[in-house]
Amino acid sequence: MNWLRKLVPSRIDTNGGKNKRGVPEGVWTQCPSCGSMLYSGELERNLQVCPKCSHHLRITARQRLDQLLDAGRREEIGENVTPVDFLKFSDSRKYRDRIVQAQKKTGEKDAMVVVHGTLRGSPLVAAAFEFQFMGGSMGSVVGERFVRGVEAAIEARIPFVCFSASGGARMQEALTSLMQMAKTSAALARLRAAHLPYISVLTDPTTGGVSASFAMLGDINLAEPRALIGFAGQRVIEQTVRETLPEGFQRSEFLLLHGGLDQVVDRREMRDRIADLLDFLMNRSAGVERDAA
């Protein structure tokens, strides 16, 4: 860690700031990958990508949508759709309490935000997972908001983009959450029939029921670098096959190699890439919208 001490100004403590006074909280962020201390303002300008090692930090649903969409008018879709503990599910804690806690922690009502906005001047519907909300798990609200987003896209004849970050189906909604896989996929069948494009962006992590439904169904599947993407959890696979998993297993680059993705895209290029791809699929001339925007 000596090299790190050199990078960090002498007055900044790298031991979590417990020992020293006078370091404002939240000004510095430690990169979870390379351990560098990063100035939060700079990290923010760099779209939460570590300038030292290009590690893509996990971000909130709203940050994601802000990075994608034009500033200005946006309309949220399905914001009044909120979760219910219809099974009175209780494990070590009640589902009802978990919902309330997740809502307090994230400021979101559930694990997905969907908005109608514009990208380089062209309208689209964009959805993004809030991973901090119960691991981005998909229950009835995620399913319903996703479908309403797709329906809004069909109605307005505009593209649909979804950023996934999810551990999979929400166990506390039992089989109903599994059925969200069928529900969301069926909505995409209707989008497909309407000849409208769907770009799926898989971010860290996208696993289980979300990867095994709409996340892998994009007309174009993109992923951020090094994102964990897969159907089964790594521990489960290790226990089943009784061997250690190969390096890079279930990472974006692994999926690209095996044909599961179209491209791995750096977050800092994501907005333009999506806009360019949609221009192709919507048969628009390149750059026109950019000028208009």
Binding site: A212, A215, G230, F231, F254, G260
Partner: peptide
């Protein structure tokens, strides 16, 4: 849940 199944796109196969 196996290595080969993941390589060959278990998620995609189900989703499809």
């Amino acid at each position: 849940p196996g290595v080969g199944a993941e390589e060959r796109g278990q998620s995609e196969a189900i989703a499809r």
